[in-house]
């Protein structure tokens, strides 16, 4: 009985001629928070976006909780799953984006209840309850009826976290969620993520915040040029590694 909530095997992805992922193997156990660090172009964001199929991949496989997503091997031939199935599988994960991507024409609460009602078919009152629960958990209990335009960046991102996690996904995917925030607003978002990790949420975090990655992760992955170069505990990766590129990368980030 596997505890593996995410299993990525030999993942290959190219943008046209450019090979971006050159054989990535990664697995996540339930309750683990794993951070992915690396310079731009290393493939870390692309890797994340393959997990919920916002990016297609050409080789390898991804399994979430044992279910193969995106593509199937049928008689040795690789076949893309139907759109319906892919849409359905996307709800297994929740994603928070660098640019928040809140729906500007909906209030914070409505942002959260939309998918609850349309995808999980929750009733209006049930959805609202869940929305308010999570708005409370991210520290915005009374901003439910505010529109994104009326919220600060940090508040918007916290609503975005609430929106993703309200769907009760198996894995939360964080894509550089603080990179677009003013410095003083970064901590309120990181604190929310730390709390969620502490409560046992399985998460894959792509981040530039090294201290945060060091504090919150069970495992840290350093990606370089489309492959996983270093993998280990935060201690291993941040303090004890001999890997040349990793050391160069860390020194440039003033960790």
């Amino acid at each position: 009985m596997s505890n593996k909530v995410l299993e990525i095997s030999n993942l290959h992805k190219a943008f046209g001629e450019l090979q971006v992922l050159k054989g990535v193997d990664l697995s996540l156990n339930k309750g683990e928070a794993v951070s992915i660090i690396g310079s731009s172009g290393s493939g870390k964001t692309t890797l994340l976006r393959c997990v919920n199929l916002l990016e297609e991949f050409q080789g390898g496989s991804i399994k979430i909780d044992g279910k193969t997503i995106g593509y199937n091997e049928v008689n040795g031939k690789r076949k893309r799953l139907s759109n319906k199935e892919i849409t359905h599988d996307r709800a297994l994960t929740g994603m928070v984006f660098q640019s928040f991507n809140l729906f500007p024409h909906l209030t914070a609460a409505e942002n959260i209840t939309l998918a609850l009602k349309k995808v999980q078919r929750k009733s209006k009152s049930e959805a609202l309850e869940i929305a308010h629960h999570w708005l409370g958990k991210v520290g915005l209990p009374d901003r439910g009826s505010s529109y994104p335009g009326q919220l600060s960046g940090g508040q918007q991102q916290r609503v975005a976290i609430a929106r993703a996690i309200a769907m009760n996904p198996l894995i939360m995917l964080f894509d550089e969620v603080t990179s677009a925030l003013d410095p003083e607003l970064i901590n309120e978002v990181l604190d929310v993520i730390k709390t969620l990790a502490g409560e046992g949420m399985t998460m894959l975090i792509v981040t530039h915040e090294m201290r945060f990655a060091y504090e919150v992760s069970k495992k840290v992955i350093f990606m370089n040029e489309g492959v996983i170069a270093v993998e280990g505990t935060p201690e291993d990766v941040f303090k004890n590694s001999d890997h040349e590129r990793l050391k160069a990368f860390l020194s440039s980030t003033k960790f």
Binding site: N52, L54, N83, K84, T87, H88, R90, A91, T93, G94, M95, F97, S99, F100, N101, L102, F103, P104, H105, L114, A115, K118, V119, A160, R163, A164, M167, L173
Partner: peptide
């Protein structure tokens, strides 16, 4: 990003179009 967020939430194209894209 709007379409991506909707996709990530598991909304179908029709739902995305009607609830997210068209209103804006």
């Amino acid at each position: 990003g709007q379409t991506e967020a909707a996709k990530a939430l598991g909304l179908s194209f029709r739902q995305t179009f009607l609830s997210v894209l068209m209103p804006q």
